[in-house]
Design a protein around this nucleic acid. Structure first.
Length: 282
DNA sequence: AAAGTCAAAGTGACGC
DNA sequence: GCGTCACTTTGACTTT
């Protein structure tokens, strides 16, 4: 049984929201733009307090609610200038100021060996070389150092302003477009990863709610069975019952609006109308 | 060698 | 027009 089937069969509804993201980090919702669902569990809470069961209805109901708090994304300071530490890394790892490369057979060896000197020596072609453009599409494989520096930069800000892009490209000896593409793909990977995490979380929520639903169904059945075994006056909702203090009879209003009463301890219920009963207290 | 995975890069749509 | 996005293609590399 699939996840969606589970969801349907439990009679549970899970609500997903994607509104509330701050404009600073997400100027526009592309998910909305593309009419795609957006998972957002930042405000999702599951607790016993969010579940409820109405025993007067035929089916128990469960509610998985979202908090009112707005989505709180990590603010990214895109205007922050490229840091010096990144420059240092670049200096350390790129003495020849040209460490970018188009992938070739040597790259794997370089990675396996972990020999940076060798890497620098072997990597001859430059990503910024104009002669590479126009030819058949060749795939650039970033070096470990380039990737590390890009990662560091990404940790600081997941988007770059043109100045930062330019500076980073210069540090890495890449074209700004390559830096841009790297950040673009990196953001996509981050989002994908988060979606996977969200999906797992949602599955766990579903499992929890399925268990809860099962438990409540069982409880409802037990209550129904108990209800059938009770005297009539006990079947009435407690709020509608009144007891006559003088004659110790219990009266109530049934669901159809009629009134009934009986002796509280009587083996056989004796009905009376509490509104027309001779006792004034009734 | 084929299949699978990863990541760089291309493309088109969209909002500002 | 530019920047960003989702989606896609494609080449490099790894696993089976």
């Amino acid at each position: 049984m699939g996840f969606e089937e589970d969801l349907c069969n439990t009679g549970l509804g899970l609500g997903l929201g994607c509104e509330g993201k701050p404009a600073e980090t997400r100027p526009r919702s592309t998910d909305h733009r593309r009419n795609k669902p957006c998972l957002n569990f930042d405000n999702l809470f599951l607790s016993s307090s969010t579940t409820s069961m109405a025993i007067t209805s035929d089916e128990p109901s469960l509610t998985l609610s979202l908090s009112d708090e707005k989505y709180q994304a990590v603010k990214i300071d895109v205007n922050k200038a490229c840091d010096n530490s990144a420059t240092d890394v670049c200096r350390q790892t790129s003495p020849h100021s040209g460490i970018s490369s188009f992938s070739n057979a040597s790259v794997k060896k370089e990675r396996d060996l972990g020999n940076e000197e060798l890497e620098v020596e072997k990597v001859s072609s430059r990503a910024s070389d104009e002669d590479e453009e126009g030819s058949a599409r060749k795939k650039l494989r970033l070096t470990k150092e380039q990737s590390a520096l890009l990662e560091d930069s990404f940790k600081e800000h997941s988007t770059l302003n043109p100045k930062q892009k330019q500076a980073l490209a210069k540090q890495l000896n890449l074209r700004p477009r390559q830096v841009e593409v790297w950040f673009q793909n990196r953001r996509a990977r981050t989002k994908l990863k988060q979606t996977e995490v969200d999906c797992e979380f949602l599955k766990k929520c579903c499992e929890t709610l399925t268990d809860e639903n099962r438990r409540l169904q069982k409880e409802l059945q037990e209550l129904k069975a108990l209800k059938l075994a009770q005297p009539l006056y006990m079947q009435l909702p407690a709020a509608t019952l009144t007891m006559c203090p003088s004659c110790e009879r219990i009266g109530g209003i049934t669901s159809d609006g009629s009134t009934k009463t009986s002796f509280a301890m009587a083996p056989k219920p004796h009905f009376f109308n509490p509104f027309t009963h001779p006792s004034a207290a009734c």
